[in-house]
Every structure is written in structure tokens, then in C-alpha cells.
């Protein structure tokens, strides 16, 4: 175990029938890190997570979690890990507070921490509401609170933001940031590339059971050498003029704005400024979607 590494996964493979759901996955996660596993549905994210949590035995490869093997079920590790499963797994008919107290007591922990977690996820006012009366976003937050009820060192969150409306997703991001601020290590899966870019310290991009790239999101994007898109209001500049600007590789008119693609945005922007043609300026850098496109040769479809 390398110092400071919470997870060391090495060469994990798991087969379902003829399909290698996880096909040679290796990575390490440091203490206090927010690590995202990113990829479309069926990429092998959940299986990878389940192997690390000790729910599944890898066919090949090894895992060390806090230096211990999580498989077979390792009771020494269990109090240190918190898991939110993909389905929100609640006890039937119990209120939010009762869920948390029940989960906390499974670990022999005082229920005070549990109630504290309700506040962390912003559900204090829903403490006496039954699980089935909560909205989708509230259920997700409660399920994260349940994963934290025993104050674990590391939390695994499987697609916590899936199927949430934009507002609920944003609320959840605040919750995730608050968890990180408490010094917890977070490993989470998502198929939202934009979200991973905003939240994660490091991201592994997975597709078809393999990790295609792994680094800080900004580094991944920077390493891409993808063009920056500069958008200005249509009519400020003729399309031909725009195309002639030094550094512009491509220019197009989508009927609303002029779109200039460049790898030298500073140069292009100063030229536009000189000509007083910055009306409605928008600058869009490459995103993880471009990284995914580059790595797989296909558009990203969650």
C-alpha cells in the first residue's frame, strides 16, 4: 500500500457470460480525494464500484481498501466505508429520521451523528416525513445521508445525480462539496460529464470495461489540444472577415451567432477587440465530452 492511498485497484477484471464488464481496471485513490468514475451506461462503473466495496469478487486482479482485501466480506472494513447503492434502499414506511437512526444503529453508532447528517443534506425539515413521500432529489439526499450515518472515512456513491432535475442536481452538488469539506474520501460514478468536471479532483473515463483516461478534468481537457470556440453576435462581422482573422481555423454561421474555432484564442480575441467586434462574446473551451469523443471516436451518449 502506497502511503496516503485509500484504494489501490490493480488489474480488475469481471466477466458476465461472454462479456467482460470490467476489463483490466487499475487506479488508486488518495485520502480525502473526490474521485469520479465517468462513462456511459454499461461502461462497467457500477461493477467496478461493487468490487471495491467488497460486494463482488473480481475474476482477476486485486483490491486494497485501507490496505485490506474487501473480499470476502471484511467486517473490519465495513465501519469505515459508507455506500449509497444505485436504487435508494430504504426501510419501508419509516421516516427520514428513523431511516438514519436505523442505519446508524447497524454500526452501533449513536443516533446523534445520524440526525446531524439530515442537516448536512438539508433535510432537517423532512425528518418526520416517510421515505415514500419524499421527492426524487430528497430521496437521493436521504440515501446519501444514510451512507454517512456511521461517519465513515470513505463514501461510495453510485450515480447519485441520475434522474434528477437540474435544480435538484445542483442542490446535491452542494451536499457533495460539504461532504468533501469534512475530509471524507469520495468515490462516485456519474454519466454527466459536465458534473464530473465541476466536482471531481480526478476523473477516470470508462468505456466498455476499460479506463480510457484518468487525471484531473482540467488536465484531461488541456491535454486534448482541442480548439476553443469563440462566439460573437451575428452581423458584427462578416463571415469572410471572420474567417480571415489570423489563428481562426474554421468559421461558421449558425443563424444566431458566428462561431470561430481556434487553438490560439488570445490572438483571435485581441483581433476581435481591436475591431470592436465583441458584441455577445462567448468563449467555450473544450469539455470532457470532447475528450470522450477524442478517446472513443464517437459522440458521448449518456
Amino acid at each position: 500500500m502506497s502511503k496516503g492511498s485509500t484504494i489501490v485497484a490493480d488489474g480488475l477484471r469481471k466477466r458476465y457470460g461472454d462479456l467482460w464488464a470490467v476489463d483490466g481496471v487499475s487506479f488508486t485513490v488518495g485520502e480525502g480525494e473526490f474521485f469520479g468514475i465517468l462513462g456511459p451506461n454499461g461502461a462497467g462503473k457500477t461493477t467496478t464500484l461493487e468490487i471495491i466495496e467488497g460486494l463482488r469478487k473480481p475474476d482477476e486482479g486485486s483490491v486494497r481498501l485501507f490496505g485490506e482485501n474487501p473480499w470476502p466480506r471484511n467486517p473490519k472494513l465495513l465501519p469505515r466505508i459508507g455506500v449509497q447503492l444505485q436504487a435508494s434502499s430504504f426501510f419501508e414506511k419509516l421516516t427520514a429520521r428513523e431511516q438514519l437512526e436505523t442505519f446508524a444503529s447497524l454500526y452501533g453508532v449513536s443516533t446523534a451523528t445520524a440526525v446531524d447528517m439530515l442537516e448536512l443534506v438539508g433535510l432537517s425539515d423532512k425528518a418526520n416525513t416517510r421515505e415514500n413521500k419524499l421527492s426524487g432529489g430528497q430521496r437521493q439526499r436521504l440515501s446519501i445521508a444514510c451512507a454517512l450515518a456511521h461517519d465513515p472515512d470513505i463514501v461510495f456513491l453510485d450515480e447519485p445525480t441520475a434522474a434528477l432535475d437540474p435544480q435538484a442536481r445542483r442542490n446535491l452538488w452542494d451536499v457533495l462539496r460539504a461532504i468533501k469539506a469534512r475530509g471524507k474520501t469520495i468515490v462516485y460514478t456519474t454519466h454527466y460529464l459536465d458534473e464530473a468536471e465541476i466536482l471531481c479532483d480526478r476523473t477516470a473515463i470508462m468505456d466498455k470495461g476499460k479506463i480510457l483516461a484518468m487525471d484531473a478534468p482540467a488536465t484531461l481537457v488541456r491535454g486534448l489540444d482541442a480548439p476553443t470556440h469563440v462566439l460573437i453576435e451575428r452581423g458584427v462581422l462578416a463571415l469572410e472577415e471572420a474567417r480571415a482573422i489570423a489563428g481562426v481555423e474554421e468559421a461558421g454561421d449558425d443563424g444566431v451567432s458566428l462561431r470561430l474555432s481556434t487553438r490560439k484564442p488570445a490572438m483571435v480575441l485581441s483581433t476581435l477587440a481591436e475591431r470592436g467586434a465583441l458584441e455577445g462574446l462567448q468563449v467555450r473551451g473544450a469539455t470532457l465530452e470532447d475528450v470522450f469523443l477524442e478517446l472513443t471516436g464517437r459522440e458521448y451518449r449518456a
Binding site: G54, L55, P75, I81, L85, E92
Partner: peptide
């Protein structure tokens, strides 16, 4: 059946119970 379907059993399995 309900606890297995809703993964409550699995969640309990992940606790030291």
C-alpha cells in the same frame, strides 16, 4: 423479498451486522 428487491439486504450486508 421487499428488502432484497429494494437492496436493503445488500445495504445491511455492507454493515457489520
Amino acid at each position: 423479498v421487499n428488502w432484497r428487491k429494494k437492496q436493503v439486504l445488500r445495504r445491511i450486508r455492507l454493515s457489520p451486522v
